[in-house]
């Protein structure tokens, strides 16, 4: 595990460093350091982005918010635009790791890491996020859903990096984020559920129950078209469950994951009178 640490001063230098196949960006390092220690990745160059001031910006684009690649969770939590305009992202962030992790970890790191358990990813999927990518061939944009293609896999190619992520403002939606883990803090989602609702429209995403964070597009359309009254609720929930394909792993079984997704959905949509369900 020997590597060179590079700290470029400009994005130009950053691009140069990344032309090496064995280079990896270091944002907060909360995934990278863990993976390097376990031998899962062994970069020969570790490229820190901490000196790139432009990547630390959060900007209000009117309908949307742009979050730079070096912005930490704690900074997002302190940002007024986020507090006002993206309750869903803040709800997700509140449940990520611990204060120490949030002080270092970044939302863009969460995207690049492409874990199905990524809590910020889930909120960004619900916020129809677009990923802003820079590379040798210039800039490109891609929706987060197509950018993440599998566990730990994205469409990034050599030399490319994420410069920012642009999310929709969703303050006019009711929002809910449920994280099911193995304890009350510092835990990785065993299953997570995010809901945005505005009248007859709904957006649903699930984490840790498929190779990637998934949006339940079919179920969303069913909700708008058919509603959830009476027997429709069961049908709606089944459509949601169809969008997931959980596995057994060291944290939980696929049986358990299915059970909790189904149970939580029944609770959220079937019992509007019960506390904690602010989407209905």
């Amino acid at each position: 595990m020997t590597f060179k640490l590079m700290i470029p001063n400009t994005e130009g230098e950053l691009q140069q460093e990344l032309m090496d196949d064995e280079a990896r960006i270091l944002a907060g390092g909360t995934d990278l350091m863990v993976q390097m220690r376990s031998g899962k990745v062994a970069p020969t160059r570790v490229v820190s982005i901490k000196k790139l001031e432009r990547l630390k910006e959060i900007s209000d684009l009117g309908e949307r918010i742009r979050i730079g690649a070096a912005v930490t969770y704690s900074e997002l939590q302190r940002s007024h635009i986020l507090q006002e305009k993206s309750p869903i992202l803040l709800k997700a962030i509140r449940q990520i790791g611990s204060l120490q992790i949030r002080n270092r970890g970044t939302a863009v790191g969460n995207i690049a890491n492409a874990s199905p358990a990524g809590d910020a990813v889930l909120a960004m999927v619900l916020s129809e996020a677009r990923v802003e990518i820079m590379g040798p061939k210039g800039e490109r944009h891609e929706s987060i859903e197509s950018f993440i293609i599998g566990p730990g896999r994205t469409t990034l190619s050599t030399g490319e990096y994420i410069r920012a992520v642009v999310i929709e403002k969703t303050d006019d939606w009711q929002s809910l984020f449920i994280k099911v883990g193995q304890r009350n803090a510092m835990c990785i989602s065993v299953a997570s559920i995010g809901v945005l609702r505005k009248g007859k429209e709904v957006r649903l995403a699930f984490g840790s129950v498929a190779p990637v964070v998934v949006r339940a597009h079919k179920a969303e359309r069913f909700f708008t078209r058919e509603g959830i009254d009476g027997t429709k609720l069961g049908e709606f929930v089944e459509r949601c469950v169809e969008s997931i394909s959980p596995i057994d792993d060291v944290r939980a079984s696929s049986w358990y994951r299915r059970q909790v997704v189904r149970g939580e959905l029944m609770k959220i949509f079937g019992h509007p009178d019960v506390g904690g369900t602010d989407v209905t």
């Binding site: 863990v34 193995q182 304890r183 009350n184 803090a185 510092m186 990785i188 944290r251």
Partner: peptide
């Protein structure tokens, strides 16, 4: 300790 889950202060 990422998979062997001991209590934290929040538990």
């Amino acid at each position: 300790f990422n998979t062997y889950i001991i209590p934290t202060i929040r538990d």
